[in-house]
């Protein structure tokens, strides 16, 4: 058994293949930004989540701090229960506002966190008390037309 040039080529091939996977994971994908082991879970109830889906990002002041892991309808409250994983490095006060926002006019929906002034921080498994639902475009247009009609009176 001795090393041959064939082994070298195969070795290069395997290294290049895994290198490409790494590039995909870290440069193209988001593996560098989320780390499952170092996160904690928070929940929030919304009247209407619009088009929010699992894997949507959670941002605070525009910085990605976590991801939505699960969206379910709570049948006792008839509200949407959104579960999200938040990076351990970021802590939020008890009175933080969770809003569903849209990136651009037609872009993806995400959750925006607006921290309040409370001294006590949210812990794993707790929920946001203050939430604001997604803006549904149809409602907005409806309101606008209604408002116009009011104005013209």
């Amino acid at each position: 058994m001795e090393r041959t040039t064939l082994d070298l080529w195969v070795g290069m091939f395997v290294v290049a293949g895994f290198g490409a996977l790494m590039v995909l994971a870290f440069k193209v994908g988001n593996l560098s930004t989320y780390n499952v082991s170092q996160s904690y879970q928070l929940q929030a109830y919304f009247d209407n989540i619009g088009g929010l889906k699992a894997q949507a990002s959670v941002k605070s002041a525009g910085v990605l701090v976590g991801r939505v892991t699960d969206v379910k309808l709570d049948t006792t409250l008839y509200k949407a229960r959104v579960t999200m994983n938040i990076d351990k490095r970021y802590q939020f006060p008890k009175d933080t506002f969770a809003n569903i926002l849209t990136s651009g006019l037609l872009g993806e929906q995400y959750i925006g966190l607006m921290p309040g002034g409370d001294e006590v921080m949210l812990k794993d498994g707790e929920e946001f008390k203050k939430t604001q639902s997604a803006v549904v475009l149809e409602d907005l247009i409806g309101k606008f037309l209604y408002g116009k009609a009011e104005d013209s009176k």
């Binding site: 193209v28 994908g29 988001n30 593996l31 894997q55 990002s57």
Partner: peptide, 10 residues
């Protein structure tokens, strides 16, 4: 990076 998810896509 924010759109491509490691688990879901890659």
């Amino acid at each position: 990076q924010s759109a491509v998810d490691f688990q879901h896509d890659i």
